[in-house]
Structure formats: C-alpha cells, structure tokens
Design a protein around this nucleic acid. Structure first.
Lengths: 160, 160
DNA sequence: TATTGTTATACTCTATAACTATA
DNA sequence: TATAGTTATAGAGTATAACAATA
C-alpha cells in the first residue's frame, strides 16, 4: 500500500516521490477553478470543430443571435454578450466582407445600424448550430441529459 | 399584453421595438456558453477581491498548490494547471523577487528546481485562501450548499 | 535521445481614450 | 448632454520555436 495520506494538514513533499499528480483538493473545491477548467475543455473542442466554418466562439454567438434577432444593433450584441464595442467592430466588418451579414440603416435611429444575416449567412448558422449541438453532446458525454440540464441551470444561477 | 411570442421559428425583428434584451434561448441552451458566462462573473469578483494581495488567478493557483505540495517543480505546476512552461517563467520569477517563494536545487534531478513557499508566502496563502473561500460563497450566493457541490461535481465530469 | 527550464517572439483577447454623427 | 459606432492603441493571455544543461 503506497503513501496512505489521511491528514490534509501534513502535505507530502512533492520533491520526494514526485508524482505527476499534485494534491489539487483545495483548488478542486472552488467553483471558479472548476468552471475555468471545464470551459477550457469545451472551448478546445469548439475551436477544433468550428474551424471548418471559420468561426470562433464569439463569431458563432453573434451569428446565432442575429439569426434569432434580425436587425439587432452592435450595441445590443455588446450588451447581450458582454463584449466591448471597439472589439466588435472588426468582427462585424469581417462578417460583412465574408458576405454573411448585411448592415442596413436603422429605420428610426440614424446613428444605429441594423445587422441582418444574408442567405449564405443563414445557411451557415443553420449548419453551425447543428455542429455546436453535436459538439456539446460529445464534450459533455459523461453527463446524462438530466445532469446536463442541471449543470446549465446551476451555471445560470451564478451569472444571471 | 405585449409581444406574446409562441413560435421560436418566427423571430420578432429587433429593429422594431429594440428592447435591450435579445432572444438568447439558443445560446443559453449550450453548456459552453453558460460555462463561459459564469466563469466571467466569478473571474471579475476574484480579480476585485484578490487585488489587495497582488494575486491573479494563476498566481493564487500556483501558491495554493505549493502550499499543499512543497517542492513541486515548474513542470508539475504546468501539467497540473494546464499552462505552458514559457508562460510560467516570469510568474515564478515575480513570486521569487516578491519573497513569496524560494527556488531550491532539486535533491535528485539536477535539471529541475524545487519551489517552496517562504514564511511570508505561507502567511499570504493562508489569508488568500480564506478570502477566496468567502469570495466564492458571495459569487455563488444564489446557490445552496448542496447545489454548489452538485455544480462542482458536474463541472468535474466535463473536464476530469 | 528525451526532459527541465529558459529566452525570444508572435498572435489573440480584452481594455481605455478619444473622435464623429446623430439624438 | 448623451448615445451608436468607430479608430487607435495598450496590456494581458496564450502560443511556437529554439537553446543550454542535465538525465
């Protein structure tokens, strides 16, 4: 029987045996640490699978939001996704030159610009949303459908 | 009764009424999106409250890990926290010049360096860990203790 | 030949200040 | 006076390649 450790207050020196596994019990008791690690994993899978569409996570969020909120403005997207206006400019410009979205003058506010998906944009979102759905299931494969729902509900209790 | 929306397939134009709240139902059904948003919130609270100690999240993780794994090497920290070796160098150097850690030659491996907390380092970690514990409770105040446990368990099912 | 720690560097992400045109 | 969108830019975070010392 190797290194039976009963007392957390007497840490085993990592220099001695030097296992690749360190004692992470304190960190793993923290919501923040676990949330960051879980997001890191999902984030990687997302990046891999969405590369074929040339979409990063923010890109997908913006397009999906526009699919369900046609004519939304940059300001609305920023407020919803919690990103800063200057950081959305180049992103929207890139979508525009890719022919995925159109910028139309806002009907009532001359300062604002309404963002609309083009037909190719709508097609891309449809495909991307399906890929994301599958990717999510794969990335959280150790969770049952019920657990997955619970996880989402608890996460929303933290940030909503 | 305003805008009774029964069908998600017929999105209300965001240009018309232009409410600050967009339809985020698709995004909110995704584990990735919710995880990222929750982490963003906790991250902000963490940054605020840990500023007094001059510790970022990675700094805290490293120090806490060293408190419970004295003599751990950079390589071990990198593997455990999933960060790249070049990005740990300046971090460890800063901790060293702040007098929080000591770098001692490794007893058996001449290439490696054992990292140890100094007395001031141990004192700082003790205080910081208490602050983090409280900060976590505040940031997840809408969760019961039971829900908090469940959330952590489910997150670990995703990344462990 | 492989690994630890390091340097230099580049790329992405996020943040701030300041401008313009409309309201 | 305040807001939508933009520009320029700075800082943090994250990534790769290559090297010296040791195993």
């Amino acid at each position: 029987m190797p290194t039976t450790r009963t007392s957390p207050s007497e840490p085993a020196p990592a220099t001695a045996a030097r296992p690749d596994r360190l004692d992470t019990r304190v960190l793993e008791s923290l919501v923040g640490y676990n949330t960051r690690r879980a997001w890191s994993v999902i984030s990687s899978v997302f990046a891999e699978r969405m590369a074929v569409y040339g979409l990063k996570q923010v890109d997908f969020s913006v397009l999906s939001l526009l699919a369900h909120n046609p004519g939304a403005t940059s300001r609305q997207l920023c407020a919803t996704l919690d990103i800063l206006p200057p950081n959305l400019v180049s992103l929207v410009a890139a979508m525009d030159s890719r022919g995925l979205i159109e910028r139309r003058p806002h009907p009532t506010d001359g300062r604002a610009v309404g963002l609309h998906l083009t037909a190719p944009g709508r097609k891309l979102v449809r495909e991307a949303e399906q890929t994301v759905t599958q990717l999510e299931l794969d990335a959280s494969a150790k969770l049952t459908a019920r657990e997955r729902e619970t996880l989402i509900k608890l996460l929303q209790k933290v940030y909503l």
